[in-house]
Amino acid sequence: DVAEQLTPVLLDGLREESLQLVSKLKDSSSSCAVDVSTMWWEAAGCRELCVVTACESSVSLWKPLASDRWGKVYTWQLGEIPVIQIVPLPDTCNLVCIALGDLEIGEIRLLLYSSENDSFKRSLVKTGNIKAVLGLKDRRLVSSSRTVQEQQVEIVSLSETGRSKDGQTLMPPEETVLAFAEVEGMRDALVGTTAANSIVVWNLKTGQLLKKMHVGYSYPASICHRAYSDSGLLFVVLSHPHAKESESCGNPAFRVIAFNPKTARSTGVTFSSLPPGHAGRYLEGDVKEASAAAVLTSGAIAVWDLLLGQCTALLPPDPDPDPDPDPDPDPAGGWALARWATTSACLLAGQRDGTICLYRY
């Protein structure tokens, strides 16, 4: 019955690309999901892709059981500072970072499992007035933070046991960096988006700021999600939380833009707009490979193929209607989180009540 209720609405006849509900997990001890992610966990010689859920005061690790069920392995209880987001570290095992703070990130902590003595630990990685953080390949973490006078962009390397090794600083741009993305296939290249709507490119090895390129005035406060270089161009996937609807492009949630880093000129490649007739705008989302997913202000989740610029599936705002309707229902109820697992084959969708649904895409 549940699977039937949650069957996503398909658009434009793209029926081969749909979302299939695989399983649900709900932490009975928590009422609200702040973030969800996946991490590899290896214990007793067995390596499994696990789900990590965060509520304001704790982070839990869930392992797959038989019959598409999930069992909680461990919960890290955190202090008085609320958890804001999970910061996954790609291609690592038994390590995940979390960002904590009030309104803004005040500290980043590492949560880890030691298979040597079968114990769960935590350690402090960084404190400060942190504006953006991203886990990079090879157990590295990049963050931007601000003091009154200046901005610091720093890379911290983490060891297998979680201890921070020497950090490296990158040359900061004048504007505050609000998001980072690794340039796929280029180990030493990193891009960021700034508060003044520019893309900046760094050389991670030397710390040099190589280029600053303006995104344009039509789409303020762009956030970078993904970047890759092809045929001498830098392709960047951006989301536009504050984009205004236009006749030519509809209401764009994501755009793929090609930059020529030599000249700083750019051109739009694809627009991924809200489905026709769908009111509201982009709230938050995630990109993996050519797939993008976002929670909309209506409480729905939309999924796009970024190469086609086309919406391929939509989870309606109220996927699991209460048989005894609330007399005062939340008008924007439904979904709160949309995250891809380590591949775009699995979507983790979080409801406002803390339930996480796993969909095969």
Binding site: T206, Q208, L210, S229, S231, L234, N260, P261, K262, R265
Partner: peptide
């Protein structure tokens, strides 16, 4: 997009910008 829109394209843009940028 054509090359004329974006200006001259270099496959080695990362190395070239790294050589040009201040250390």
């Amino acid at each position: 997009c054509s090359e004329s829109d974006l200006g001259p394209i270099s496959l080695n843009w990362f190395e070239e910008l790294s050589a040009e940028a201040p250390p």
